Computed example of a mutant assay.
Amino acid sequence: MIGFIGVGNMGSAIMKGMLNSNTLQASDICIFDVDNVKIETLQKEYNVNSAKTLLELINTCRIIILAVKPNMCENVLNELRQHISNNQIVISIVAGWSTSKLRKVLENKGKVITVMPNTPAIVGAGVMALSKDHDLDSIELNEIKTLLKSNGLVVMVEEEKMAATTGISGTMPACVAMYIEALTDAGIANGLSRDFALQIAAQTVMGTAKMVLETKTHPAILKEQVCTPAGITIEAVVSLEEDGFRGTVIRSVNRCTQKCIEMLK
């Protein structure tokens, strides 16, 4: 059985992705959270199992996904340390907690792997970045990869590059959502209905991303293919360049990465 300690936005997104893809059945999942409302809501919607105590979940589940807030992580790990067996796997998605830090608090009990997910996991289109610094054998690692593939792209990342990876895949869904929102507002300002503007904005972002991935064409070339001389598109590109669009994006990723590095200390 797979146990979720914490079913907030990210924990529940991963759980829902696994269920929506039929990778797991509701009977395969057990959840625990200090917020009873969250548990009741998920039980009502998905009919998953729940544990009344953290100890009950630990004793029930071979694989445990740790999805609590960073400031709660140490207390949870202290309880895990007292009861977990060396054969149990702990998948941590807690921001700011490196593999070595997790091992230290757990006193090397259990098998630890750190994963940085993102919210598109709920629709099977996320990025699941797994640290190469882990305690799993090859069979267990393949099992976890298969499990997480239901949430999207699974990549293996060096531990020292996890912060930079977080700066892009972990945080940028919020910024991409802001971009889609801005496109929608621009459509409304120019006479489109909100629903229609949102639909074509989201589809345009999704379609462009799919084109990059499937054609393996550099984004700069895709941009040039749309920009005809003295045309409409180049006006938009020039406006974004004048306002420092690319520099703003790069600085936002840099700030996210630095914040993550600070949290890992």
Rank of each mutant, 00 (worst) to 15 (best):
G6H: 02
V7G: 10
N9L: 09
A13Y: 01
K16G: 04
G17E: 07
G17L: 02
M18A: 07
M18Q: 08
L19D: 04
T23I: 10
L24Y: 08
Q25K: 15
Q25Y: 07
A26V: 03
I29Q: 08
I29S: 01
D33Y: 03
V34N: 14
D35I: 06
V37K: 14
E40K: 15
E40V: 12
L42P: 08
Q43T: 09
Y46R: 07
A51I: 02
T53S: 15
L54D: 10
L54I: 14
L55T: 15
E56V: 01
N59E: 14
T60M: 02
C61V: 07
R62A: 07
I65K: 09
V68H: 05
K69R: 11
P70F: 09
M72K: 14
M72Q: 15
C73W: 02
E74P: 00
E74C: 07
N75F: 04
N75L: 09
V76A: 00
L80S: 10
R81P: 01
N86Y: 06
N87C: 02
Q88W: 03
I89C: 09
V90Y: 01
S92V: 04
I93P: 09
V94E: 09
G96N: 07
G96W: 03
T99C: 09
T99E: 08
S100Q: 13
K101C: 09
K101S: 14
L102Q: 02
E107V: 00
V112L: 10
I113A: 02
T114L: 06
V115M: 12
T119C: 04
P120G: 05
I122W: 04
V123L: 10
M128C: 12
L130E: 09
L130I: 13
K132S: 14
D133C: 11
D135N: 15
L136S: 13
S138G: 02
I144D: 08
K145D: 08
L148Y: 06
K149F: 01
S150C: 12
S150N: 03
N151G: 14
G152I: 09
L153R: 11
V155S: 12
M156L: 14
V157P: 05
V157D: 04
E159T: 12
E160G: 02
M162T: 08
A163F: 00
T166M: 10
I168S: 01
G170I: 01
T171Y: 01
A174R: 07
Y179I: 15
Y179R: 04
I180P: 06
I188E: 11
A189N: 15
L192G: 09
R194S: 05
D195M: 10
F196P: 00
F196N: 12
F196C: 10
F196I: 14
F196T: 13
A197S: 14
L198Y: 12
I200C: 13
T204M: 12
M211W: 03
E214V: 03
K216E: 15
H218S: 08
H218I: 11
P219R: 05
P219A: 03
A220C: 05
E224P: 00
V226L: 13
T228G: 10
G231N: 10
I232P: 00
I234E: 13
V237S: 03
V238T: 14
V238P: 00
L240C: 15
D243C: 11
F245P: 11
G247E: 06
I250N: 06
I250A: 15
I250W: 07
R251A: 14
V253H: 06
N254A: 13
C256S: 15
K259C: 03
K259P: 02
M263T: 11
M263D: 02
